[in-house]
Write a protein that binds this DNA or RNA. Structure first.
Lengths: 337, 337
DNA sequence: CTGAAAGCGCTAACAA
DNA sequence: TTGTTAGCGCTTTCAG
């Protein structure tokens, strides 16, 4: 097992000083063509690579971004993680990933501390919120934090979201246009901003058509939770004609429960709509009407927000709300006359 | 924006030397109760946290593990990532994650170099293989690499897999017992060891019952690929009675194509079985017969392998093959008389 | 353009 | 138990 190659060894082999080696590998540093070739040759022969930690220590730039994520069972998040990671890699950043269990609120706290210990240059919080004390600490350290698919009242906190309210309105309007009057809603985790905004939009969309919610259950963003909610909501004779489920992941559970447990047809007996438009929503087994989150643009904006505040920490918070799009599929249909 | 707190500042405030501060925060170092309290108090007041990079540099232990992953669309991997990350976090390790596109073989090469630059203490390669030159380099650096859900001929490479061959046999036997004789197989990426082993096991399982494959297509582990394969395989009049699809992710595509494009019933017209037993396989929309990978044990073994070789790099490769289990569900049924 | 020298924040001998 | 002293591998002045 050969030891690690340092710049000093390269320097010796190339017959130059250690700092010369450093310069050769540093963007925009001065080195004569002769030195460059000598050093590069020696480096290649030895298999030299710069120690990212040592660089990070001195420059204060670790080129790492912390990513805290929960709900990986919901296909929306793996997809986001993948794209985010790719976008960051393209910019020369790397991702230190942490799982947060959504239920344990202060687990996030502990996890964030650990992330900060690694001197990350920024943090992305996907679907988790943070205590304001913690956000203050990050601000003090000058570490930008951006909330992905979640918002907080604190206006100093950057966030990238879809227009959840508008999406809710779109679904409400869609249901009204289809002629449904008995309407149900299955909520996500009550504390989540996405849940609140989508529900409020949905209610307002319905209200604009003179409609109101006739049933509401809480699924907590879980498959099992949504399944139980659907069963509860639709077991009786007064079941809704149309149900908006706060995200696709739960909507699949609702469709499954309706079809396979209650023997109901979707959309003939009950229309179901979700939110996110994850790839599975397009699979013919579900063919789910959904409000699409523009995930590419969300990721783009998240990276943008991060980069801006890394370059200029004094810059004010970047709060973006992107438009999505209603994707009409076969899980919603007009009310029966 | 307050500057970063260093151990020196804590030392000054506590009226002790900088190294005393270091000792207070180091496991098993000597410090009098009096010093400990003084230092801890000062540290708390200042909000001091150790700089993980600086520690890593000196100790040579970054407490980071590199994770390279592809195919995040296949639910098996997000699940694995989540559990792996949690298991590692419990042991005080953190995960630097990299996405590798499965098609670009040498993308992995580049990505691995970057990981190594961060002085990770180990690397997990999920569903990707590596060139032998690269594995040599890792060995030289004394960095343990473990292959998760993939194998390589190189016996010096640690790996954790399910008994893919045995799983294939189990499915083949299952089909034979159900009385099917026209059998199809939809392959994953041809190069993957999982693909090869599962297919070989399947063929051998069939052969033991005097059966043979009557159709074979390649889906490359992709939903779209599997869909096309299914269509090709089942459009004619000589379609198979039972199809084994190399993983669940593709099996969903096959079921969807059969049902919604070809108007066939599963399992009445065609039996379909997958491999992995991801959570979606249990959803009633698919209710898929599958060979379960013991993901918890796989993760446990992966962490174990890593830890062992981190502690003792001279230790020989850890190659584990875990038993899975055939999960019979409603997507497979006896042949019609 | 180049080498010498001073650290980044911390751990780990080494004396005291 | 403590403080002092070297560094870890690298970037970055600062002279030359």
């Amino acid at each position: 097992m050969q030891k690690k190659i340092t710049s000093l060894q390269v320097a010796q082999r190339a017959g130059v000083s250690q700092s010369a080696v450093s310069r050769v590998f540093t963007q925009g540093a001065s080195a004569s063509p002769a030195t460059v070739t000598k050093v590069k040759k020696a480096a290649a022969e030895l298999g030299y690579r710069r120690n990212a930690m040592a660089r990070a220590m001195i420059t204060g730039k670790s080129r790492m971004i912390g990513l805290v994520v929960a709900y990986l069972e919901n296909q929306f998040y793996p997809e986001a993680v993948e794209r985010l990671s790719n976008a960051l890699q393209e910019r020369g950043y790397h991702v230190l990933i942490f799982m947060a269990s959504p239920t344990v609120g202060d687990g996030v706290q502990a996890v964030m501390e650990e992330i900060l210990d690694y001197q990350v240059e920024g943090i992305v919080l996907a679907s988790v919120s943070m205590s304001s004390s913690l956000s203050t600490r990050c601000a003090e350290h000058g570490i930008p934090v951006v909330l992905f698919n979640r918002e907080q009242d604190d206006a100093s906190m950057s966030s990238v979201t879809t227009d959840n309210y508008g999406g809710g309105v779109a679904i409400g309007t869609h249901f009204a246009e289809l002629g449904h009057t008995l309407i149900g809603y299955i909520a996500g985790h009550e504390e989540a901003s996405t849940q609140r905004d989508r529900e409020q939009g949905f209610r307002d969309g319905l209200a604009a058509a003179g409609l109101d919610l006739s049933a509401r259950q809480v699924g907590n963003f879980l498959y099992a939770g949504a399944r139980a909610s659907a069963l509860e909501m639709c077991a009786g004779t007064d079941r809704p004609e149309a149900i908006f489920v706060c995200n696709d992941h739960m909507a699949f559970a609702v469709v499954d429960a309706l079809r396979f447990k209650l023997g109901l047809r979707v959309p003939e007996d009950v229309s179901v709509a979700g939110f996110d438009d994850v790839p599975i929503a397009a699979w013919p087994a579900y063919n789910l009407t959904s409000y699409r989150q523009p995930i590419n643009r969300m990721v783009g904006q998240t990276v943008e927000a991060l980069m801006q505040r890394i370059e200029d920490p004094s810059r004010q918070a970047h709060r973006v709300k992107l438009e999505g799009a209603l994707i009409r599929r076969g899980s919603t249909a007009p009310a029966k006359r």
